[in-house]
Amino acid sequence: MKESTLKKKQKRLIFRSAMLLVMAGLVVFAVVSSLGGEDAVIAKGEKAPNFQLKKFGTDETVDLRDLEGKGVMLNFWATYCEPCKDEMPYMEELYDKYENQGVEILAINLDSTDIVVERFLQEYGLTFPILRDESGQVMDLYQIGPIPTSIFINPEGEIVEQVRGALTLSKLDGYLQQITPE
């Protein structure tokens, strides 16, 4: 008699605890998911997702995957973006130096017409490779919000840093050094 009562009590305690735990777990899951927002695919240490874009003014395409072994800087920009205009000359200035050290700067343009890009390049005298992402697919892939945004990828193809907003010359230099192959 006594034993069966004890057993019953124990069973009840286990059942109640299990139910409460499961329900508490579900609540925590809901709250965390709703507060956490979107999971970041683009985070430090993650592998940079691959893409293929045409180089502006040529038929040549660039595959990010082919650039493994090199440091890569992605810069998302557009002609109508004022802060982009400020940082473009810094990239131009540092491009040659780092290209020789195995770092590729890819400026991904988000405009919809060629002519505005062409005029912009003429005005600013830019010579480093410009990729065109007319459909915005790569921008979506990298979850780019406001531009400019720069992403620095090390030779192993991992994202080292993501910078929103315009860079100064010295900051740009610092980040590029970080992704320079040994």
Binding site: Y80, T113, V116
Partner: peptide
């Protein structure tokens, strides 16, 4: 010759600029 094109132009300090690509 189109010397410059501004899809959505606004005047900024007396210079035309585009504020979007549309």
């Amino acid at each position: 010759v189109i010397e410059n094109y501004y899809p959505e132009y606004e005047m900024n300090d007396g210079r035309p600029v585009s504020v979007s690509k549309f």
